[in-house]
Amino acid sequence: MSEHTPDRDAGPPPEAVAEGPSEPSAWRLTFSYDGEDIRLVAQQRVAMTAPPDDSPRTYAARAGTWVEVRDTDGHGLYRQALADPVRHGYEAHSPTGASREVTPQAPSGVFEVVVPDLPGAHDVVLHRLGDAAVRGPARPARARARKAAPAVASPVLTAELGETPPYGVA
């Protein structure tokens, strides 16, 4: 017959297992908007991993917003799709699960985009395609007029990549 002894403590595992070579670097881009006036207010290099490239579906899209990283020749290196970063509406949810959109009286806010720090990257471009009015009810007359966008991406903003002081709010 075998003798069963008290449990024996074998301790915790070894130190963290090497994860493999990784020195990721990315750019954190902070945008602020007031109505349709969008500004790039800060850029920072951050040791982090950017989301994967969305080029295939942004090239296929005829509506949406995305950020593109370009080289000095204007060639696209990377794209990241964004989900309505300029808030034309908020969802009012309910405990029953149903939701509805609410249009803010004065859309304004901040959004951040993290893009990879790629060799040869020089500019960042914010694209917006499709008529913004399609995504919400008619805006007040005092809002800046905006024509229906053609079926070609219109850069909303182009900026050279480069570090700026971190964005903050007093």
């Binding site: 969305d54 296929a60 899209a61 005829r62 989900a83 395609l129 008529d131």
Partner: peptide
């Protein structure tokens, strides 16, 4: 905000006319 998913319901627009969305 993190995964670029669109809402999957209609609310106030009868028919979408802006072309293929990126979501």
């Amino acid at each position: 905000s993190a995964f670029q998913l669109a809402d999957e319901y209609g609310d106030s627009i009868a028919t979408w006319s802006a072309g293929e969305p990126s979501e």
